[in-house]
């Protein structure tokens, strides 16, 4: 596998506060990686940097072999997408929301839309107004919209937080389908069981720093760092 992302000496500051400091991180093409850590650890910030929504304050991000400079006005490359923790949908039908990403690319793929509506259990809701759906249904629409564009990189920020087991199962099934297509998937999650089910590698962040990385299974059972062990065992750390 070739490196898709290479991060060196990354920091991200908001005002005087440093929210992320990662000295080095490499993510390979086709990997599925879990970002784990307590709230405020820097997971969402790292996802925003990987999506090129924001530029790091210092350091360099190399994507697909090219250094990238993300700015507020930069258009995110069409092959990367991010699904936010809170589903953000347009005030239109479910189907139009799902199709939105492809529409931006001036493409249509009705067959794939139908397949995704089926995969995520949205067939019956296709013509419903998206903003009237339940949280779980909305999150499934947001995921379907991201999957439709067949991204090279799918970034997921707590995709199943606060969802019931039925919605979690549907979401994970769809994520695995994209995984099988060879996409790189990076998922920030509090749910360690989900990290184990979906990913091969995990990265533990704490207070904005990358503390430990390694195979997911190993990190959950034989973490090297005491802070990782404390988090995995359910102890609160600040």
């Amino acid at each position: 596998m070739s490196p898709l992302y290479q991060l060196k000496g990354i920091t991200k500051q908001y005002g005087a506060r440093t929210v992320l400091a990662v000295s080095q991180l490499v993510i390979d093409e086709g990997e599925t990686v879990a970002l784990i850590g307590p709230s405020g650890a820097g997971k969402s910030t790292l996802l925003r940097l990987l999506c090129l929504l924001e530029a790091p304050t210092t350091g360099a991000i190399c994507y697909a072999g090219r250094p990238v400079m993300a700015t507020q006005r930069h258009t995110v490359p069409h092959e990367i997408t991010l699904v936010f923790q809170r589903p953000l949908l347009l005030d239109t039908t479910v189907r139009a929301n799902v199709a939105y990403g492809l529409r931006l690319r001036k493409r249509r793929d009705d067959q794939r839309i139908e397949a995704l509506l089926d995969l995520l259990g949205l067939r019956e809701l296709a013509h419903a107004r998206a903003t009237t759906l339940s949280g779980g249904e909305m999150q499934r629409v947001a995921l379907a919209r991201a999957l439709l564009i067949q991204p090279r990189v799918l970034l997921l920020d707590e995709p199943t937080a606060n969802l019931d087991p039925y919605n979690v199962a549907l979401m994970e099934q769809a994520i695995k389908a994209l995984q099988n297509e060879g996409s790189t998937i990076i998922v920030a999650t509090h749910n360690l069981h989900q990290a184990r089910r979906l990913t091969q590698r995990a990265i533990f962040l704490w207070q904005g720093q990358l503390i430990e990385e390694g195979p997911t299974e190993q990190m959950l059972h034989e973490a090297r760092d005491a802070r990782t062990r404390a988090f995995v065992s359910g102890e609160l750390i600040y």
Partner: peptide
């Protein structure tokens, strides 16, 4: 701003 970020993350240009 969150919706605008989501649209950017889907590849939308400033005009879109």
């Amino acid at each position: 701003v969150a919706l605008r970020d989501q649209l950017r993350a889907l590849g939308a240009t400033a005009g879109q």
